[in-house]
Every structure is written in C-alpha cells, then in structure tokens.
Amino acid sequence: MATAILIIAGIGMVAAVALAVADRYLSVKEDPRIGMVTAELPGANCGGCGFAGCDGYARALVAGTAPNGACAAGGDAVAKAVAKILGVEAAATERRVALVRCCGTRSEAIRVGDYNGICDCNVAAMTAGGDKGCTYGCLGYGACANVCPKGAISVHDGLAKVDKRLCIGCGKCVRACPKHIIELVPASATIHVLCANPDKGPSVRKVCGVGCMGCHLCEKNSGGKEAGHFTFQGFLAKVNYDNPPTDGAIVAKCPAKCMVEDSHFESGH
C-alpha cells in the first residue's frame, strides 16, 4: 500500500516539475490582441474576408497583413471596434448584400429542356448550358443557397432570391454561381435591374418575358445620361451603385418589367 502511494506521488512530483519547466521555457507568447479582435468579429466563419474563418482574419489584422473593414458580415461596427483595439483608422464601409440579377421565374422565362439530373446549378450548366432558354439567367438549382452560411438564399419558382435581412455579404454565392449573375450591392440601394442578358431586345424577348431590352427608358426617366444612374452593357441596363437612382417612379415605367424597387423578400416581391 505504502509503495503504491509513494510511486503515484513520485510520478505526480516528476510530472509537476516537468510541467512547471515547460510552462517557463516552452510557452508560446500570443499577442493578446488576437483574442480581443476575434471576440469582436462576428464568428460566422463565412470566409468572406478571404481568410480561413474569423480567427485567421484576426491574426492577419494583428499582423498588419489584412486591411481593416474586409469583414462584410460585421460591417462598420466591427471595423470601428477593431480599429480601437489596433489603434488604426477605420475605413468607412457600407453594408453590402447579394443580389441575384435575374427575375425570370418559370412562368416568365422559357425552359428549353427537361433537366432531371443532379440538382445543382454547376452540373446543370455543364449539361447543354442548362435548361433555361436564356443562357444568362438564374437556373434555380440552388448552388448559391447551398453555400450560404446564413440560409439567406431560397429558391422559389426556379429563381434564387436573397433575404436582405439575413445576408451578411460574404460573397460565397457570388463565387458559386456558374452564370456569374450574383453581385454584392450596397444594402441602401433600393432600385435594381434584375436581368443579366446583354443581347438585343428581340432575342431576349424570345426566351424571357421580363428581360431587359436596353431601351434606355430608365435612364431617360431618371434624369438622362448626365444624371449617371445607369450604365449600359450591350443591350442591358445596369444600376450604377456609386450613384444609385432613388425615384421609385421609374420602376413602374420599365416596359420590360425587369426593374424592381427593393428586390428582396422583405418588401414581398
């Protein structure tokens, strides 16, 4: 009995000394600011900043290799808090949210084939470019919804939509979309053109009832070219998000019906 107690106590002694020595000589000093910055970040680990999770971004911030304000999910508040800890300027950031630039639902945009393969846009796009007549539009097989860390994207009637309230602007859906029609836009912008087809009017009309024909009416109604609310790419109008239009009246005047005022769920579009 006594031997057993002695042996156990001896092992305990040796281990305690080893641990004490290791703590003294082998300890890794970590910048305490890393922990503080990590605590400020949202913890969504969405990867939108380009680093592997919030911890990775915090380390890069403290090391000075990443710019402050890259955290789309945290936005301004986080940038300010981080700036306070690190003693740097907080660049003014605006909250950005994802926008799917297509409004061709199954009833509006024709489908040219029956696709019954794997339910994933990237696979569907590999099969004859997808089953949608418009080769630019949303296929509606939910590649974006599958990667969204916040469940902000849902597919209704063959069309993906983003819930603005849930979107943290990480940009994962932007990279997942095989048609490259998802864009990060300022959350404050309310008027959007939901079309990505730059073809001429007649060929757009052949495949979709709500495609932009590039008629420039939106530009005319919002104060002309000088006002600079819209840019044109081929026969496609794009909202200039550096100078977005604010007058909702132009939406109703769009003959193609591809313009919306606040395209996101909350307004019930």
Partner: peptide, 13 residues
Amino acid sequence: RPITQFCRRAKNS
C-alpha cells in the same frame, strides 16, 4: 442514379 454526372461534377471541381 446519375452516377456519371456525379463523377463529372467531382472532376470539374
């Protein structure tokens, strides 16, 4: 099952 399509998807990514 669309097994070939699964393979193509994997190869593509």
